[in-house]
Design a protein around this nucleic acid. Structure first.
Ligand SMILES: [Mn+2]
Ligand SMILES: [Mn+2]
Ligand SMILES: [Zn+2]
Ligand SMILES: [Zn+2]
Lengths: 132, 132
DNA sequence: CACTTTTTTAGAATCATTATAAACTGCAAA
DNA sequence: TTTGCAGTTTATAATGATTCTAAAAAAGTG
């Protein structure tokens, strides 16, 4: 399958579990946002054999470290992940607790004028909270 | 004292505990960022009689609801609060796990061009992650 | 196949946060 | 000033997302 290479190239053994999680995460047209809980449900539907929760956590963290996923900073009791690892911003619908991608062109360039000695900017993220 | 009015006006009884927490939070020159844990330590140092952790949580949530504090969206295992409730942005030092305020002028105006039907923008926050 | 290393897994542990329910307190009406 | 009560505090238990553990299984290597 097409994810075996991807995993091997990043030094991760292409196990049955990881390949199934790849299918759920990456074999789709659009990127999406998810919590571990939501992912667990999707995996249950998608595949017959069960993957333990510990493995889901392990895999997500491995994928995040490799840059295949990123965490989105939101105040929620659960951590949100994003399969869109490009530089982009978010709407957060406070009522539905749903994230929506904003393209860079939806926000325009952001220029951070202040510098901190000895530190480099790693990322610049905008979170736009929405209410009714 | 000066916080009795403030509390009364927002429908909160000015109890000894709330007044002491007000002192720790608001009786200072500069605003600051904190976790509940860090606040607990400050309270211990500042005052003789102990305030239960439950009361600290209760009070912080009450103050947040009244708009005297706000939560900052960060991916941490603890929730961060801010005594600076004006519209502003943040640096987040990934190594030290410390927040630094950015003035609006440090970032410049942000124009959200995309609209979502039936939703209003409640806030626009920029998080700039810093690494060494 | 024989061997090493990585991965999976069930279950336990952790720990920030929230819930509970009994005691206490601020406050206003009597 | 007393009384009554809603609001508040508190110790403690419960919750729940996440991480840890250590043993079993699977993958890679030759
Ligand atoms: Mn959080
Ligand atoms: Mn978080
Ligand atoms: Zn996204
Ligand atoms: Zn701040």
């Amino acid at each position: 399958m097409k994810y075996i290479e991807k995993l091997r190239n990043s030094g991760l053994r292409p196990t049955k579990q990881r390949l199934q999680i790849c299918e759920v995460l990456f074999n789709r047209d659009k990127t999406f946002h998810f919590t571990i809980n939501e992912l667990e449900q999707r995996i249950k539907k998608h595949t017959d054999n069960k993957i333990s929760l510990a493995t889901i956590y392990n895999t997500i963290h491995a994928f995040e470290k490799k840059g295949y996923l990123k965490q989105i900073p939101i105040n929620s009791n659960q951590t949100y992940f994003d399969t869109n690892v490009t530089d982009h911003h978010h709407f957060y619908d406070l009522k539905d607790e749903k994230l929506i991608d904003l393209e860079k062109s939806d926000v325009g360039p952001i220029n951070i004028l202040r510098k901190i000695d000895g530190k480099k900017i790693k990322s610049v993220e905008v979170l736009v909270k929405l209410e009714d």
